[in-house]
Design a protein around this nucleic acid. Structure first.
Lengths: 99, 99
DNA sequence: CGATGACATTGACAAACGTCTATGTCTTTG
DNA sequence: CAAAGACATAGACGTTTGTCAATGTCATCG
């Protein structure tokens, strides 16, 4: 790694990692990513867990707020979609630290 | 992303991300990585923060326990070293999710 | 041996987190 | 308009987390 992170940089990156650092949210992301057309509605996701619908809704909100998931409402359903650039950018940052 | 993560996979990865998901620990990692010879003793690290020595010691322990830092004692000093493979592996995992 | 200094451990405490139940909002349909 | 269904929000509650002060351990040096 070239030069140490500044406090500001560290506090920018940490929330992204924090959003990712939960087993349920990791699975949510991967479920969305592996779904047909790269998007999934909340109903699909809720069915994949033994958790209440509000809990899933909460996790999706966290992922959306840090910019890892896009959100689009169509009719009664809400579809979430992976923001691959955001994830790829984070991966690049981490990988950079390893070289 | 090809196939969704299993619960087991997710619960293996999450602790690593959790260890990374703190501004202080991010800076600690980058400080160690950018230090001469790729290692730093606790005294060097403590000086870089306005935090108590036990707090730094705690964060280093967290990073060590998940395998991101190696620990070696030489005389009175303890040196920490970045485990680049661990970090690179994590980066690869995340990047994989983005493709 | 006794003092000093580097680092770890313990215990305490407030803040943040993950989950649930209850309720709200908004859209569709009869 | 009324009922039903998809999703979000609010509030509550136990658990985890980040921090500190106090103390412990161990190596070094007079």
């Amino acid at each position: 790694m070239r030069s140490p992170l500044s406090s500001q940089q560290a506090e920018q990156i940490a929330p992204l990692l924090k959003a990712l650092a939960d087993p349920v949210r990791l699975r949510l992301l991967s479920l969305v990513a592996s779904h047909a057309d790269g998007e999934a509605c909340v109903c699909d996701l809720t069915d994949a867990f033994e958790l209440s619908q509000p809990t899933i809704s909460h996790h999706l909100k966290v992922l959306h707020e840090v910019g890892l998931l896009d959100r689009s409402k169509r009719g009664v359903w809400v579809y979430y979609q992976l923001r691959t650039e955001a994830l790829a950018g984070l991966a690049a940052l981490i990988d950079d630290g390893a070289r």
